[in-house]
């Protein structure tokens, strides 16, 4: 662990693309050991918000804090090394490299020595039941394995906070359930805080300790799954589309 404190906080985040306000004044906190669902209809600004948290998008206003530290000016690599790690909706593995190298690289970038980085990569791959695939070229993997390697690459960094952008996208129901169940196991084992963007309502409400609902770049509800589910705005904006 990197010991950067027990809370990730975003305060009054605002993002504008040209004249278009994509996120307006969203605040959110994520405690260590907590699973927070970030939901909302398409275009609500969920991925942009994750980009702000991970440093890929500079907000026009607002602050991102990691523990007591203001990390708003920090670059993605610096945040990742400080324990704030993300995955991508499109996975983005290092396609021409092996599965082991994909994970090893993330460990090396933390400054670990070669042997230790490789050992930790092996451990992480084994935890995610990827040990038989270490020598495979990442671009040759089937989709489900690819997504798991993406999570292994994030976990090997021993994050305090992990931001998962639709980790189950494109998986079938059984694969998706399995992956999301493993997220709970990851939280239990590593004690990290998890921010989960996920469309499947059944899973979000079953898995998350708290849920944060965005719509058109603004917060319309937040709280426990039961509380959020009861909000009329949420039902209208999102659940009204029909539970899947």
């Amino acid at each position: 662990m990197n010991g950067t404190g027990a809370r990730l906080a975003a305060e009054g985040i605002q993002v504008r693309f040209g004249g278009l306000t994509v996120i307006s004044g969203v605040s959110l906190t994520l405690e260590k050991g907590e699973i927070l669902g970030l939901i909302g209809p398409n275009g609500a600004g969920k991925t942009t918000f994750v980009n702000v948290l991970s440093g890929f998008q500079r907000p026009n206003a607002g602050q991102v804090r990691l523990g007591a530290q203001d990390v708003t000016p920090w670059k993605p690599a610096q945040r990742a090394r400080a324990g704030l790690v993300r995955t991508f909706q499109a996975v983005r593995l290092f396609g021409g490299l092996t599965v082991l190298e994909n994970v090893e690289i993330a460990a090396l970038a933390q400054g670990l020595p070669r042997a230790e980085a490789r050992q930790r990569a092996m451990d992480t791959l084994r935890d995610l039941e990827l040990a038989p695939h270490t020598a495979a070229i990442a671009s040759s993997l089937p989709y489900g394995l690819e997504r798991r390697v993406g999570i292994a690459r994030a976990l090997v960094m021993a994050p305090d906070f992990i931001l998962l952008d639709e980790p189950a996208a494109g998986l079938n129901e059984a694969e998706g359930d399995e992956l999301l169940a493993s997220i709970r196991a990851i939280r239990d084992r590593h004690g990290c805080g998890v921010l989960l963007i996920e469309h499947n309502m059944r899973i979000v409400f079953g898995l998350c300790d708290r849920v944060h609902v965005l719509r058109s770049g603004a917060t319309i509800a937040e709280g426990t799954p039961d509380h959020v589910r009861a909000q009329p705005e949420v039902r209208q904006a999102y659940l009204g589309e029909g539970e899947r």
């Binding site: 690599a77 790690v85 983005r92 290092f94 190298e101 690289i105 993330a106 090396l108 970038a109």
Partner: peptide, 23 residues
């Protein structure tokens, strides 16, 4: 390690940054 980290940036610079690599 520099060679390996650099090849990561070659494969996907965005993912490399997310993994903590100073591209």
């Amino acid at each position: 390690r520099y060679g390996l980290l650099l090849r990561a940036t070659r494969e996907d610079a965005v993912a490399a940054r997310a993994a903590g690599v100073e591209v």
